[in-house]
Each structure stands twice: as structure tokens, then as C-alpha cells.
Design a protein around this nucleic acid. Structure first.
Lengths: 137, 137
DNA sequence: ATAATCTCTCTAGTGACTATAGCTTCAAGA
DNA sequence: TCTTGAAGCTATAGTCACTAGAGAGATTAT
């Protein structure tokens, strides 16, 4: 049996976050010691590892809840699990593309500045200028 | 003089968001009509355009506040403005790199699944398996 | 004058935690 | 056995940047 601190160290999930997950019913309330402290078994260790891994991949709590529900039904087809992962892959790619557009714009702004006082600063000008922000970034 | 709705249409910033910015003191409280409605001049239009542009680039409110302070002092050197923009560029690149690692991992997971029921599902297995998450992503 | 639209303030909710306060329990050493 | 310090408990509030909703008043077009 693990204390919440030991579980935290084994999974890399912070103690308050574990309690938060319990509140959100992502993990079920574990047994308690005589003195009312949480005591976890390997079942909970595995579940929390699953959650940690999924969170690290950027999956939302709701998506993780769905995956956990699915994994509780081993005979069901795995289409749904794939769909969740693939949807997230698509969203991740979109986010990357968007950030790359921003990166290009930031590069343009930061490398363009030749002035040495604010009144000539290209960064400030670019942000001020309505014309510059119209075309698409 | 513009109503808050007109300002919203011109800048692309939603009406409640404009009021929120006023509360956060990013924009100063404008004049009011007889009936207590906000009336904006071009000064505020430009300031809000600046804010919108900066937010679209992903800059945080605090960074924007700093840039606005800087732009109020045209004779100051523009190093600080450049630093803010460059810091954000670096952070954006790191975020892109991180998302690309996640993308690779998600691809591995989603394309690896050959099973057709949850008990063989590679997505679920990958998330469950502690070994798979140790090495680096 | 009236209807439709806009605007006002205020409060609360979002997601996924994080921080704080004030208390109790546990484990290890003297 | 006693003590001390770390770890754990609950409950509440704060974070960021908004967004939603209620219920009331203002403005504009017809």
C-alpha cells in the first residue's frame, strides 16, 4: 500500500493534483488508514500512470475519462479509442501549424527592428499598425 | 465616437472582452454617453488594435501591458520591446518543438493499433504501459 | 410610439490545476 | 516512551483570459 506521497513520486503526478483527480472522479477514492490517510494499491498506480501519460500527450481530462471507460470494457471494439487519439493528433497538428505562423510573424517583427528608440521600434510599430495585421497571420 | 459594439467590430475584440480589458486596466475607462454607455475615440481604437495584434501573437496580458508602457515613452531605447518579442519567439519555438514530439508519439500510437477490440488496442496499451512512457517523450 | 437591438452591471463558470491556512497523523531517532 | 519534523488532511481561494447569463436601462429605426 502506497501513501499519496509515494504514489506521487512513482507517477510524477503532484500530490494536490492526485487529490484533485479524485475530486474530479478520474481516480476513485482509495482506502484510508486508521488515521484517515489515503492508501493506494497497484490498481490505482496503474490508472494514474495511464492518466499521467495521457496528460503528457496533451489529452484533456474528458478525453482521458472516455479512454478509461473504454479500457474498462476489453471486449468492445477499439475504434473509439483510436478516434480519440486521432482527433487529438489532428488538433495537435493544427496547433503546430498555427504556432509556426506566429513564429514567422515574430521573426519578421524581431529581426526587422533597426531603430534604437521606441519611436522607431519595429516591434512596437508592427503591433500598432493595423495594415500589418490585416494580411493573414 | 464609437460605441463598444462598433469598437468590437473594428478590432475583432468581443464586447465582453473589451470590458474585461478595462477592468484589467489594459485600456483606460472611456467617456460615457448621457445614458452611461461607453464612447470610444481613435486613441482607444488604436490601443485596442495593438492589444488584439499582440494577443493574436500569443503574448500574455502582462507582456502587452509592458509593451504599452514602453510605447508611451518614445524616447526610451527599444531593447526592452525587442527582448519581450524575442523571449516570446523563443517560448513559441520551444512549444512547437514540444508539440512535434507529442505529434510523433501520437502517430506512433495511432498507426500502431492493429487489434480490433480494446484488449488488444495499441492506444490503450501505450497509455497503460509504464515502460513505453519512460523513454523520453 | 414602439419594437428591435445594444448596452449596462454583476455574478458565476471554464480547465486544470496551485497555493494557503490550520489542523492531524506518521515514522524515526534519543 | 517521547519528541520532532515531515507528510497528510480538509476547505477555501487564486490563477489566466476570458465567456455566459440575468435582469435592467439606453439607443436607433421605423
Amino acid at each position: 500500500m502506497l501513501s499519496i506521497g509515494e504514489l506521487s513520486r512513482k507517477t510524477g503526478v503532484k500530490v494536490p493534483t492526485i487529490r484533485y483527480y479524485e475530486q474530479m472522479k478520474l481516480v476513485t477514492a482509495p482506502e484510508r488508514s486508521e488515521g484517515n490517510q489515503r492508501r493506494y494499491s497497484n490498481v490505482e498506480l496503474e490508472r494514474l500512470t495511464f492518466i499521467k501519460h495521457a496528460r503528457d500527450l496533451g489529452l484533456k481530462i474528458d478525453a482521458i475519462r472516455e479512454l478509461l471507460d473504454l479500457s474498462a470494457h476489453p471486449e468492445q471494439p477499439c475504434e473509439d479509442a483510436n478516434r480519440i487519439a486521432e482527433d487529438h493528433l489532428v488538433a495537435t497538428r493544427e496547433r503546430i501549424a498555427q504556432l509556426q505562423r506566429l513564429e514567422a510573424e515574430l521573426m519578421r517583427i524581431t529581426t526587422g527592428c533597426q531603430g534604437d528608440s521606441i519611436k522607431d521600434c519595429y516591434v512596437i510599430q508592427s503591433l500598432s499598425d493595423h495594415a500589418l495585421c490585416q494580411d493573414g497571420h
